[in-house]
Amino acid sequence: MVRSTLPRATRATRALRAGFAGGALALAALAVTLPAAPAARAADPDVNVYSTRQAFLIQPLFDAFTEETGIGVNVVFAKEGLAERLRAEGDNSPADLVFTADIGHLNDLVELDVVQPVDNATLESAIPAQYRHPDGKWFGLTLRGRVIYAAKERVPEGAVETYADLTDPRWEGRVCTRKGDHPYQVALLAALIAEKGEDAARAWLAGLKDNLARRPQGNDRAQVKAIMEGQCDLAIGNTYYMGKMLDDPEQRAWAEAAYIVFPNQDGSGTHMNLSGVAMTKAAPNRDNAVALMEFLVSDRAQEMYAQLNHEYPVKPDVAWSDLLRSWGDFKMDPLSLSEVAKYRGRALMMVNSVGYNS
């Protein structure tokens, strides 16, 4: 059974939990809340999780883990701020694992020094090297492609085949994207810098800006809605959003107005991003946390991930869902996401220097 609060917390961690919803004010008070030295903590029979992934996406997996092992999973969910919370809690943190999406967020955990390496043969054999930290400080669990959405009625199949095609003058005023400094867009640009160099990446970004139909705005779903409404003919987004829209009666028409193009199939392949997990530095229940990590790369859990959120399993030999198979096989960019993370700072500066959002 998945419980929504952390058990057996010290007074300090209870105060943290109560104050977490208070945001920055609660974090500012941490120096007073936490004791001067780490308090001794006894391990409990559960695993304590901090997650930026919404509960409905991962709770069925935790339920399956508990059913199989008898180990409970306690979850604290927050859209943002978990890395900073872990740094503030330090050795007193009750969290064992942190779940998040996007290479940027995983890299932030490493840069803030709030996670520890895990050396584990099961994880290393299940997860390809490009989807895990070289020192075991984070591990990918699911994959999503950063693809092109194309209007079914206005963009013939084959008219766009690469990310570079989005800069062709023929598409002037016909492309929509979310803001350039969103982590998904930053990761794509960072991958282009890693593969082609800064000059080529800057030229691509400037060309993309020249073809925008409107100021960058909204999430990936909003781009598909704009295609349906005729505001643009092409957009950039993650694969799993198409599945989410098809599941939603109010958004199904958006998805049905567009089709997916997997870019760069004759070259580097489609840029991939991921959701992942990392073990916190404090991790009071390390053995149980490792057991959960191992479960999440089992065939059973990987198949559940694919069905629940329309994401690609990170484990290569696990079958895709029927919906993912209907979109066809495609070549994934083999570039290591740790390499992509190195260029995120440069990518963000590039977004600002070309004035992409304006």
Rank of each mutant, 00 (worst) to 15 (best):
V115K: 11
L106F: 05
R146E: 15
W138Y: 05
R87P: 06
L106I: 06
R144C: 04
E124S: 02
L123D: 03
P128I: 03
L106W: 07
A78S: 10
A150F: 05
V118Y: 01
T122D: 12
P134A: 02
N74C: 01
L141A: 03
G145N: 07
T122L: 09
R132H: 04
D135A: 09
E153R: 15
R85M: 08
K79P: 07
P128W: 08
N92V: 01
I148Y: 07
P117S: 02
L112F: 04
T66P: 06
V73K: 07
L143A: 04
D96I: 00
G90E: 15
T66H: 09
E89M: 10
V98D: 11
R154A: 03
D119W: 10
A78R: 13
E153Y: 08
L97H: 00
Y149V: 01
A95I: 04
P156C: 01
N92D: 14
S93Y: 12
N120C: 05
D91Q: 15
F99M: 11
D108I: 10
V155I: 15
V155W: 13
T69A: 05
V114G: 12
E111A: 02
V155L: 12
A126W: 13
R144T: 04
S93I: 06
N74S: 01
A64S: 08
A83P: 13
D96F: 00
T142D: 12
T142K: 11
G158M: 13
K137C: 02
H105G: 00
A121G: 05
E89S: 09
A78T: 10
A95D: 07
A78Q: 09
